[in-house]
Write a protein that binds this DNA or RNA. Structure first.
Lengths: 239, 239
DNA sequence: GAGCGAAGGACGGAAGAGCAAACCTTTTAC
DNA sequence: GTAAAAGGTTTGCTCTTCCGTCCTTCGCTC
């Protein structure tokens, strides 16, 4: 039976134990690449940050050293110094073969997160959340000609929806999903017309959330994501 | 700004580095508790299993020893021996305080997974998937008076939906979510009427999947899950 | 009934990750 | 000019994991 095969394959699949070092690089690196930590922003002091993240300072420093060598942060010493997000950021790297091979699963996972977020945001969003989302839609409208800027605001919109659910795990899931998507779409051309229609969907999603219309939010979100997916399917192997 | 607070809190939140030993106990233990590995079933031989799971045999043995001491598996030596899932299984343990404190986030995560699965299953389910799901619905119908049996088949139905998406990551996400939910609902009384209405929703979900009606599958699934959630909200703190 | 082979069970050393607690160096605010 | 606040460095310990080897059990085959 194919059921047993897939179940067993999943249960007995390799255990990938990510080290604290790797997870830290990932977390901070993704936050920087997504713009959650803006260029020029200062990170908390090492002694504070390692406490917050529940790791030893030496482990944190390994991660910061790696991010420093890849050009994502730079550190200055002395009083008033600190670790700062680089400005400008280094250029993004092309996706690895492994990332490309799993792009469909990445999209599937994102679909789940975004749908759940859309439904729960529609149930729970407060007025101030909606205001923030409105602003982001407007900001996106002004960035149709500038893909990097558009993508930044796009991420903040999607993460903003996740924040409106008040569920930290969904915020984490959303940032992870967006990080994975960024790796995929960084190198794909996006003409202004596509971005305009994408933002029209944003507008409809926010409207549905405002009206507490969860099914509609979910439906529009599905369309929104399948737009991206169709573009990828045309460009990537296994599409 | 609450946005910055939640984003930063998420980015700088504690890094949880689960050891290979812990992850293995979790994986196998969850699979056993969910019935994915049926009582009496034989696990692959240690020398094979540690290869499949990408860990050292000594690490796997630590995990198996733990599961043996908790009564979930028992091992027999000699040719024709092996490690077997206990029959009957030990009684479930009551949820920890930590699990109870996070029950809402657990439900949120499950909602996301189940919604994504419902939508993708509606796009991708093949005839043999639908047959298997039909059988499970029938099986559930016969188990309305026996909650443990009902719950077992319920899990297999939801995991079966995930399998119909052909996305290993979603299968994993589903088993994790179901494992977390099982910890929550094991001790809650479920009268046959509730189970009957729950299974009526199953029927509607499978029907929507068969008709490739993703939005309807998502809508019914949302109702289905919110049933559970309302029950929990009435019984647990912070509801 | 002797022995082969497949299974679990046990031990010991090597390597690496992570932690903790110091101490050093640079810079600037006061 | 000095103290404080930051990054940078060093050292040693603990725990996890890995790898290889050997032991023990016991059913199947000859």
């Amino acid at each position: 039976m194919s059921e047993d095969d897939l179940s067993a394959a999943t249960v007995f699949a390799p255990v990938r134990s990510q080290t604290a070092f790797e997870e830290t690089v990932d977390r901070l690196g993704t936050a920087i690449k997504l713009g959650l930590l803006a260029p020029g922003a200062r990170l908390p002091a090492e002694r504070e940050l390692c406490t917050r993240m529940g790791i030893a300072r030496s482990t944190l420093r390994q991660a910061l050293t790696a991010l420093s060598q890849s050009g994502h942060v730079r550190a200055t010493r002395g009083r008033g110094g600190g670790t700062f997000v680089s400005d400008p950021l280094p250029p993004a790297e092309p996706p690895t073969r492994e990332v490309l091979a799993l792009w469909r699963e990445t999209c599937d996972e994102r679909l789940a997160v975004e749908l759940g977020v859309a439904v729960l945001a529609a149930e729970r969003a407060e007025p101030q959340d909606l205001e923030a989302l409105d602003e982001l839609v407007a900001e996106l409208e002004d960035a149709l000609e500038d893909f990097p800027a558009f993508r930044q605001a796009d991420i903040r919109l999607h993460v903003g929806l996740a924040e409106a659910t008040r569920s930290p795990r969904l915020v984490r899931a959303m940032t992870d999903a967006q990080g994975a998507m960024t790796d995929l779409i960084a190198y794909i051309a996006h003409p202004p017309e596509v971005l305009a229609s994408s933002n029209a969907q944003h507008r409809r999603i926010v409207a549905a959330v405002r009206q507490r219309d969860a099914p509609r939010a979910a439906r529009v979100m599905t369309e929104h994501l399948q737009g991206t997916e169709h573009v990828l399917a045309g460009l990537l192997p296994g599409g």
